[in-house]
Design a binder for these strands. Structure first.
Lengths: 340, 340
DNA sequence: TTGAAAGCGCTAACAG
DNA sequence: CTGTTAGCGCTTTCAA
């Protein structure tokens, strides 16, 4: 016997009235007598009636559900985003379906399909590192499902987006290192097919240029995980003209790097100043505490969801996509401040 | 105009056949001619037809969706659990709805309601710190929705559960400290209304007893966050007969404690040996590296989901609930090993 | 080999 | 004030 959940029919039968009356009574329709309302509501409570959201979705072609496609929730930043999403959605009476792509393109495609199939009212997306074909997202567009990107946006699709100013934040972080007297600054970059990877690199380079510091191409390496951060330091920092500082594309990479730097017998920040990006739970916990950029995950999730819900409500086919840019705040801690 | 997704009717109309034929053709029903099948499938692909999961759910009283009620996904452990859940669910063609209780009872109750309303086929639950009334979960039981607890189980409801052997793991961690020569061991405990909190405390105490070490009640304090871990150390470790070691109920607490211990000018592990619990991303990153218990989050999520899916499939009203106990492995690192 | 009709749970126009 | 009916998208007898 499948779930024995109570339906409106059950209530109607027990009360000897019609289902439509029950339906109306439950929503306080003015036509219904107080007496009937009371009887219906009491029985509903007693039998623990829960409206069938599935039937409602079908009826109204509105699921009051939004879908989220997110790379990996293990990352503090993304889990913060989800909290922002859930809080807003929850207050608006929306349910959230979260799908992890695990940074895999195929998984992301299935995720999109599943969400379309579930007839979500809107979708929030942050694309995976692997994604460079956007057919699956175009399907969402074509299906007229509102879609808002966050953090990792898609270059080829015109849609709302919430990002931080990665360029400026990277610029700020680099400038900060320069102001500490650093001259040979390494950058561990993110995947350059992602806009965030490119923007952070550009901000880095521009800061160097503005301060007339030569840009050494071999000090710019793609490395965006604890392991690659660690390995890359071991190669890049062993020679005599090693970098005197490092700007890493995220905190975990910075921390992998920090460990390797320690293993090489170098001191942070005096031998090597280090800056991360994202300001996760780690930044305050490692030794030395890590200078990083606060990416405002919670706010990003909140904002993206607010925009999405607005789109869902206004429900017009044509609109001008809006890109909301949050400011990334550089938070200076011990890993980058040279004693002078 | 709401979502313009293609339906079976659209296909039928365009092909001049009936919806039922289309339906059958799409599922390769043997009665349908190859010709028709081909035509239908081609058009479906061309128009990017996606079956309406909502309609299917209503029709079959089966949503192929499972709900998860989880305290907070920011915690590494819980996000690991979710990955385990998603992987298994995904392979079985199930969608996952994740709800965070944020450790709030009220939120947990709404979560349960929402999931019931969405007619999920089953629910996975780890209760919040605040939860001591279980009415909402009893509603799930009464609705005949299969339910499996993980990690934080509910004492009053007979249901399947997947946990680790918290008692034994705490015992092992304590024993390890004792073997390092520790005599005054503090325990920062979790909320004692949670079984995990009680079990870990019991394992701690039993280990002390087995080794004839006095149990000092004032060295057992409820503290289960970075902040409380930090504060508690400041109070408890300042006197001359301070503890020589600490077993914390989770890693973040241990790390808060470690920072405070450093601030007091004490050395880890020589002055104070420290052990955490959960083995998150942090354990390897802090200095010194933290001894901790691997809680096997991914495996826990996987196992819980496997059991849940089994219950959903077999679909019998009566069964004997099963409690699967995973072993928690103590992982010894620098924070607890005294040089001798 | 295909179509017509009923029904999953609910709502809303239309009747009464 | 309440009941009847149709329909959301799909499947599935039953009939042709």
């Amino acid at each position: 016997m499948r779930s024995s959940q109570v339906t409106i029919k059950d209530l109607a039968k027990q009360l000897g009235i019609s289902p439509s009356t029950v339906s109306r009574a439950l929503k306080d329709h003015p036509d219904i007598s107080e007496e009937t309302k009371k009887a219906v509501k009491e029985l509903a409570q007693q039998l623990k009636y829960q409206p069938n959201a599935v039937a409602l979705s079908l009826k109204h072609s509105r699921s009051h559900t939004i879908g989220v496609i997110i790379p990996e929730i293990v990352h503090y930043f993304f889990s913060q985003v989800i909290s922002g999403i859930e809080d807003v959605a929850y207050d608006a009476g929306f349910t959230v379906i979260i799908c992890q792509s695990n940074e895999m393109f195929d998984r992301e495609v299935s995720n999109a399909k599943a969400l379309l199939s579930h007839r979500v009212d809107g979708i929030l997306v942050s694309i995976s590192k692997e994604t460079s074909d956007f057919e699956h997202l175009r399907n969402v567009e074509d299906g007229n499902i509102p879609m808002v990107f966050f953090d990792r946006v898609c270059p080829e699709i015109e849609a709302d987006a919430v990002i931080i100013d990665d360029y400026q934040a990277a610029y700020d972080a680099t400038q900060h290192l320069i102001e500490q007297g650093c001259k040979r600054i390494a950058h561990f970059a993110g995947p350059l097919n992602l806009i965030i990877g490119r923007k952070r690199k550009e901000g880095f380079i521009q800061a160097l240029k503005d301060y007339n510091i030569p840009v050494y191409e071999d000090l710019i390496v793609e490395a965006d995980s604890f392991e690659t951060g660690h390995q890359t330091v071991k190669q890049l920092f062993k020679g005599p003209d090693r970098p005197d500082s490092l700007f890493a594309v995220n905190d975990l990479t910075a921390i992998g790097a920090i460990q390797a730097i320690h293993e090489l017998g170098l001191k942070i920040p005096d031998d090597v100043a280090v800056t991360g990006f994202s300001d996760g739970r780690f930044s305050n916990i490692v030794n030395p505490k890590l200078t990083s950029v606060d990416q405002h995950g919670y706010e990003m999730g909140k904002t993206a969801t607010e925009i999405l819900l607005k789109r869902i409500m206004e429900d017009q086919r044509e609109y001008t996509p809006e890109t909301r840019v949050l400011k990334g705040n550089l938070i200076v801690r011990n890993s980058s401040v040279k004693k002078s």
